[in-house]
């Protein structure tokens, strides 16, 4: 079995957010879904100190050819999944380009600088406007508020992966999701994750 060709190889995805948002789980989940289909996947993650309220970023390199650097070269990301909206801008400033696509969760998590009043958090309109300017295409997603109604805001990360499956050429369909989530999660947690994935996928279909 060989993996289907990708429109761009390596295809570079950045999942960004704040410690505690399930960023790492989302990247591993996607990685496993793709490795199961014979892709080479390289993931670079930054965690540790950054769990303490800092930015957390995962780089995914997806390729039919080989492993790549766990750090994407500057300006060469193809897709950004921002579980926290302002984090999208931090990523775009280093890895962005005019062709980039962005899926972003609309729920902010204020950094301490904003809580203390030293900095101002942009309005949703400003965020949307900025992302229109910096991306070829972007999709806002009310993932956290939807996840809250499902009982746990952290499910927002799975919704983002579901949303990605709807708009990207990566083979991330429901079947492979179900298969993979079954491997990664205790059975009791599988249904709610399936529900979250479906919601995200439906939201952008």
């Amino acid at each position: 079995m060989t993996a289907p060709q990708l429109p761009i190889d390596p295809y570079n995805v950045i999942i960004t957010g704040v410690g505690g948002q399930g960023n790492v789980l989302a990247s591993r989940l996607m990685g496993r879904m793709l490795v199961a289909q014979d892709y080479y996947v390289t993931i670079g993650e930054t965690f540790g100190a950054s769990q303490r309220g800092g930015s957390v970023m995962s780089h995914l390199r997806i390729s039919t050819r080989s492993a790549w650097s766990p750090q994407i070269p500057h300006g060469r990301a193809h897709m950004v999944i921002a579980i926290e909206p302002s984090e999208a801008f931090r990523v775009l400033a280093v890895y962005g380009n005019a062709e980039i696509q962005v899926i972003w969760n609309t729920r902010p998590i204020h950094p301490v600088s904003v809580i203390t009043g030293q900095a101002v958090y942009p309005s949703l309109e400003e965020i949307a406007q900025g992302l229109n300017e910096l991306s070829a295409q972007n999709w806002p997603l009310e993932a956290t508020s939807q996840a809250q109604t499902m009982g746990n805001p952290i499910l927002g990360n799975i919704m983002m992966v579901g949303a990605l499956s709807a708009v990207s050429d990566l083979p991330l369909g429901s079947d492979i999701f179900e298969e993979t989530i079954n491997e990664m999660m205790p059975p009791a947690k599988v249904p709610i994750n399936l529900q979250a994935f479906s919601w995200g996928r439906a939201a952008l279909t």
Binding site: A49, G53, G54, R90, L92, P122, I127, G130
Partner: peptide, 18 residues
Amino acid sequence: RAAELAKTHAPFRAMTFC
């Protein structure tokens, strides 16, 4: 332009206690 927007749209996120 991206760097400019990052300054205004991505406020500094310092480490902090949980």
